[in-house]
Design a protein around this nucleic acid. Structure first.
Lengths: 340, 340
DNA sequence: TTGTAAGCGTTATCAT
DNA sequence: ATGATAACGCTTACAA
C-alpha cells in the first residue's frame, strides 16, 4: 500500500496545469492571476485537500505566527482568564499560542529564551507570580518581543499591560476603613513583584489618608497562594485579643480564601468577628461564604491587550505604546462588616 | 547599523572551520566526529550564541514537536488541571503545547483539522464539554493522531484516556442513599457526552441496587456549566413540598456550585434541608460552604497519560494501548446530611 | 499575466 | 571521520 503523502504545492500545480508560483499567488493572494486559472487552482486545492505546510512557510517568512504564554499556574483562575483573553486576540490574528507553565514542567529559565531564539516563537507574554529574577526576562527581551502582564521591571522599561493596582488597593482599603475598622492587618504579595508593591502602596495611602500611620499596621508577607493566606492569617490572628485585627486586607483572592479557611478552622466568624477582603475578583470569589468583597481586575481584557501589544511589537518592530492602566472596580459583597 | 541576523549552522561551520554536516552531527549527536573538532564546534556555538532554527528542522524532519490541546474553557479548573498534566508530559518530551479554546476564539471546527494537516501540530489532545459533533473529531483523527480525554465516540474506537466515571458515580449515589435519602433528583451533563452518560448510568445503578426505579427519579439535563446548575436546581426544587427532593446529585462540581448558589439565593439550607453532591473535586470544591462532597478525578494524571498516549501514537505510528480507566475517589465532606 | 529559479536553514545520503 | 550536495515545501525577485 502506497505511503500517502500530503499534497504539496507542486501537486496542486501539476493537477491544475499551472506553475508553482501561480499556486502560491492564489494561496496567498499575493500576485495577479487570471480568474480562470485561479479557479482551476482552487479546484485542485479542494480536490487534493491541500493545506500549506506551515513549517516551510515559517522557514521562508522567518516568522512562526506563534507566541508563547508563560504563566505560573493554570489552577489560579486569574491566570486562566488572562490566558483566554490572549487566546482570543491570537486567534483573531491567526496566531497560535504555546502554553508554558514553568512550575509544572520544571524547565530551566533559559529554556524559554531558547524557544524564542529558535524562532518557534515570535514573542512571549509573560506573567509572573513570584517576581522572577530579571535574568530570564532580560534574556527574553533581548531575544525577541516580550510583554509583561500586570508586572513591571523597575530598572528596565519593558512593554507591559497593567491595571491600576494602586488605585484598586486604595479604594478597597478605604472601604474597609469606612466600615469603621481601625485595627487592620495586611497580607501582602511576593515582595519583588510590582503588583504586590503597588497594592501595598495603595493600602498605605488609604491608611495614611485616614490618619493612621501605615508603619504601625501589622504586615505579613505572602506569595499569592492560598496556603500563604492560611498561614499568615494564623500569624495575624494569634495575638493578644486586644491587638487582634478586626479586618484583614489580602493582596489577592486566593490568599483571602486561605484566610477564610483558617477562620473556618478556628471558629472565627466572618464577617461578624473579622472582615476579610481580597483582590482580583476571580469567579470563585462570589461563590465562597461569605461572598468575598474584592477588587475586580479585567483579567480577560488584560490578556487581550497584552497580546495586541505583543503583535504590534512584533510586526511594527518599532516601539508600540502600551495602553493606559486598566481600571479596576471595587466589588462590595458580604465579607466586610463593621467591627463590633 | 547592520541588521543583526541570527547565526545559522553555516556561520558556526565557518567560525569553527569545519563543514556544515559536521556541525549538524555535533548538534544532533547523529554522526561520528573527532573530539577536537567537536569542541571547536561547541565553542563556536557558544560564542555565536547559536540556536537551531526549528522551522527548518520541522520542514526537514516532517514533524513539529508540537501538539495541540483543544478544550472548552480554561476557567473550569478541571480543564486547567488536565492542561497542567499535559504540559508536564509534553515538556518531558520536549514538545510544545498549543492551546486551543474554540469557545473563546470562535474558530470554525475545521480550523483545527487544518492546523493538524498543516503540520504545525503532530497531534491533538481533545477535551469536549459539549459532546461535539463527531465530524470535527473524525476529521481530526483522519488528519493525524488524536486522543480523547474522559470522552469516547461510541461508534468509532478512538484512542482515549478515561477515568472510571461510572463507578465514581455509583459510589457517590450510594453514599447519598446510605445517608437515608429517598427523594433524589439528578442533574446530568450534556446528553451526547460519554462522561455524562457514564455518570448517569452509575447513578442509576446505585438507585436500582437500592430498590428504587431509576426511571422514577426526576432528571434534569445540564451542560456542565454553573448557570445550568442554578437553573436546573430551580426547576428541581420549585415543586410541591411533598415532591421536593431531599438530595441533588449533580454530574459535576460546577453545576453543584450553581445549585448551591440557587439555594443561597432562595434560602434553602444546605445540607440540613437539601444535600448536594458534585463530581470532579476541583480545588474550589473544598472551599465553598458547605464543603462539597464529590468524586475526585485525577485530572492531572489524566492529562499526563493522555499526552503520553498521544506521543506513542505519533512516533510508534502503530496502535498503542490506552491505559486502564483511572480510579476515582469519593470525597466525603459536608454537603450531605440525613434528610429530616 | 505567467513561469523559472534562487534561496530559507536543516538533515541525510553518498562519496571521499 | 569528513565534506559536498540534494532534498524538505514554500516565497519572491526576475524574466519572459
Amino acid at each position: 500500500m502506497a505511503k500517502k503523502r500530503r499534497p504539496t504545492m507542486k501537486d496542486v500545480a501539476a493537477h491544475a496545469g499551472v506553475s508553482l508560483s501561480t499556486v502560491s499567488y492564489v494561496v496567498n493572494d499575493s500576485g495577479p492571476v487570471a480568474s480562470d486559472r485561479r479557479s482551476r487552482v482552487l479546484d485542485a486545492i479542494r480536490i487534493l485537500n491541500y493545506t500549506p505546510n506551515e513549517s516551510a512557510r515559517s522557514l521562508k517568512r522567518r516568522s512562526a505566527s506563534t507566541i508563547g504564554l508563560i504563566l505560573p499556574e493554570l489552577a489560579n483562575q486569574y491566570f486562566a482568564l488572562v490566558a483566554e483573553g490572549i487566546e482570543r486576540a491570537a486567534s483573531d490574528a491567526d496566531v497560535l499560542v504555546v502554553l508554558c507553565v514553568p512550575q509544572a514542567t520544571g524547565k530551566s529559565d533559559d529554556f524559554y529564551a531558547q524557544l524564542l531564539r529558535s524562532q518557534r516563537l515570535d514573542g512571549v507574554v509573560y506573567l509572573s507570580a513570584t517576581g522572577t529574577l530579571p535574568s530570564l526576562i532580560l534574556e527574553l527581551s533581548r531575544s525577541g518581543a516580550v510583554v509583561l502582564v500586570d508586572e513591571q521591571m523597575p530598572g528596565f522599561e519593558l512593554p507591559a499591560v497593567v491595571s491600576d493596582n494602586r488605585r484598586g488597593a486604595r479604594e478597597i482599603a478605604q472601604h474597609v476603613i469606612e466600615a469603621g475598622h481601625r485595627q487592620i492587618a495586611l497580607i501582602g504579595g511576593p515582595a519583588p513583584l510590582w503588583s504586590a508593591d503597588q497594592r501595598l502602596a495603595g493600602y498605605r495611602e488609604a491608611l495614611a489618608a485616614a490618619g493612621q500611620d501605615p508603619d504601625e499596621v501589622p504586615f505579613f508577607g505572602g506569595d499569592y497562594r492560598q496556603r500563604a493566606g492560611y498561614e499568615q492569617a494564623a500569624k495575624a490572628l494569634e495575638v493578644a485579643p486586644a491587638d487582634r485585627p478586626t479586618a484583614l486586607i489580602c493582596a489577592n483572592d486566593l490568599m483571602a480564601f486561605g484566610a477564610l479557611e483558617y477562620c473556618r478552622a478556628s471558629g472565627i466568624a466572618v464577617p461578624s468577628e473579622l472582615s476579610i477582603v481580597g483582590f482580583d475578583d476571580i469567579p470563585t470569589a462570589s461563590l465562597v461564604t461569605p461572598r468575598l468583597t474584592t477588587v475586580r481586575q479585567p483579567a480577560h481584557d488584560l490578556g487581550f491587550a497584552a497580546a495586541r501589544l505583543l503583535f504590534s511589537l512584533i510586526d511594527d518592530e518599532g516601539e508600540a505604546t502600551p495602553p493606559m492602566p486598566f481600571p479596576t472596580a471595587l466589588m462590595v459583597r458580604d465579607s466586610v462588616a463593621p467591627p463590633r
